[in-house]
Simulated scan of single mutants.
Amino acid sequence: MNEPVRNAHALLRLSYHQFELVDRGMDGTSPPTLDAAHANGLVAAQRGAAVVLASIHTGYVDLSVDLHDHAPEPDTAPWDDVVEISLDAPHGEVRAAGLMSNPPQGLPVLTHAGPGTYRVRVHVRGRDTAVDQVATDPVEFYRLSLWPAPAAPTVIHKQTDHYGATLRARALSHPLTHDTPETVLPIRSDHD
């Protein structure tokens, strides 16, 4: 079994249905929100940044992180959706934060082995609880598992929540009109 080299937990404040994983120096270059996140209903990345989609509009989510040296076995039982992507971290200082928010206290740099490419496995449960609402107490729970690894295609481990299905259906009805999934386009909510 691949035990984490580090794990941590915090409450993360988010807005506009999303939070980011952003490498130092990359937060001013282009928004890390991608239409590609709608394709799997949960997460997408571009060089130096990723976006994770939440169903609450604004508020707090419960976030835990596990940092590994090698890929851990998938643990899907307690989660509604589990999606794994690659993230290129050129500076090696990726942190989780909400839009227009500072990273929460207690979370380490997520790219613990320094600059390079990582796999990010995003686990979530509770997104069908308070869709489009403000959550002062967490109703959505996320776990991020990261480890250094070469770039690879997205892996869908589990997809069962209604909110993710809605996002995937939206992506199918409005497919990307660009050459690559890395094209940056802001995600817009019906409530923005």
Rank of each mutant, 00 (worst) to 15 (best):
T58N: 10
G116K: 03
S189V: 14
A96M: 08
R125C: 05
L172F: 04
W79I: 03
W147E: 05
A45F: 08
H191P: 03
E20F: 14
M1W: 06
V61C: 14
D69T: 15
S101M: 13
V155E: 09
Q133W: 06
P181Q: 06
L110I: 10
P104M: 07
D75M: 02
V51I: 15
R121E: 06
H9A: 11
M1V: 09
S15A: 11
P90L: 10
A171D: 11
Y118M: 07
V155R: 11
G126W: 01
L185A: 15
T33A: 15
V139Q: 01
D66E: 15
V5P: 08
A89D: 01
H68K: 09
E182A: 14
H174V: 12
P4W: 01
V122Y: 00
T154C: 11
S55R: 02
D190K: 09
T160W: 02
M26K: 09
S145G: 07
Q159R: 12
D66Q: 13
P186M: 12
T136K: 12
G41I: 05
I187H: 13
A10L: 10
R143A: 09
I187M: 15
E93N: 13
H38T: 13
D80L: 02
I187N: 12
H162P: 03
V131I: 14
A71F: 05
D137N: 08
V22C: 10
R24V: 11
P74A: 11
D161V: 05
E93C: 05
A165I: 04
D132Y: 14
T154I: 13
A39L: 13
E84A: 09
Q133T: 13
T160A: 07
L99W: 14
A8C: 14
T117A: 11
T33E: 06
Q133N: 05
I187Q: 15
T166W: 12
E140P: 01
P72S: 08
T160R: 06
L11A: 11
L12C: 05
T111D: 07
E84D: 05
D88W: 10
L144Q: 03
L14M: 13
A54W: 00
A135K: 00
H70V: 12
L172I: 06
L63T: 04
T166Y: 07
S189D: 13
P153R: 10
Y142R: 03
D161T: 10
N2P: 04
A36V: 08
R13A: 06
A71K: 03
A8R: 11
L185W: 12
S30E: 10
A152I: 12
M1Q: 07
V131D: 04
D137C: 06
L185K: 14
V52A: 05
T183P: 02
R121L: 03
G126E: 00
V124P: 00
G41Q: 00
V52S: 01
T154V: 14
R47P: 09
E73R: 08
A44P: 01
Q105K: 13
R13S: 13
D80Q: 11
M1S: 10
W147P: 00
A36M: 12
P74N: 05
Q18R: 15
P78D: 03
L11V: 06
P115D: 03
S101T: 09
G126T: 03
S55I: 11
R119V: 02
G98L: 04
A54Y: 01
P78A: 10
P103I: 03
R95Q: 11
V82D: 00
